[in-house]
Design a protein around this nucleic acid. Structure first.
Lengths: 98, 98
DNA sequence: TAAACATATGAACAAATGTTCATATGAATA
DNA sequence: TATTCATATGAACATTTGTTCATATGTTTA
């Protein structure tokens, strides 16, 4: 089943919404390092556990991250190679004009 | 003057906000075709003139589009090559899983 | 199994965002 | 220059969104 270009653009907007919040993009950027549990992420990006958990859920729902449980912890990791490409591309743009 | 990675990520979130709304991304996608005046854009994406104008202003402020006046019309065009790269990359991601 | 640790989640709240409506501004033309 | 066409903009409104706070759930260990 093929989607119209309009549908694709709407999905695209949805995708970019994930990168459009500084907490979420910090989480994604943090996970470029490799998989981490929630506590680590909180420390790295200096946000409360609750705020991070809420955002992780959004990222997971949109399939940009995935998770696995390891004992008491839950480990999150990037679900998709495109994430790093998209961040890299945006980063290039942002760093270009300073 | 060098910015911290945190600043870069905040700017990055700001950048992606522009792509995170379907009206704006439709405008940007529409302009991949080439420059167009406001009326054309409205017809192409089927949105009111006011809504489009408001969003064009946002896109212009964030320097993703530029404009020039030609008689009664104002012509808008993409200001940056990165725009197409970013859209293309996201499009690839979105179209991948269907 | 009770306590401690790690994560998830719901409700409430404030702030940000996008559209509409009405109208203003700017430019061409009758 | 009055009218028409094209675009911009402000105010109001509804919606969406992100954080905090309190608490629930799940897992290990004393």
């Amino acid at each position: 089943m093929e989607s119209s270009i309009e549908d694709v653009l709407i999905d695209l907007a949805e995708l970019f919404k994930n990168f459009a919040d500084s907490t979420r993009i910090k989480i994604l950027y943090d996970l470029l390092d490799g998989e981490k549990n929630v506590t680590e992420i909180c420390e790295d990006i200096d946000m409360t556990q609750s705020a991070v958990s809420h955002q992780l859920k959004i990222l997971k729902t949109s399939k940009l991250v995935n998770s696995k449980r390891e004992g008491k912890s839950v480990i999150y990791f990037l679900a998709d190679d495109h994430v790093s490409s998209i961040i890299a591309m945006g980063k290039e743009h942002v760093e270009e004009d300073e």
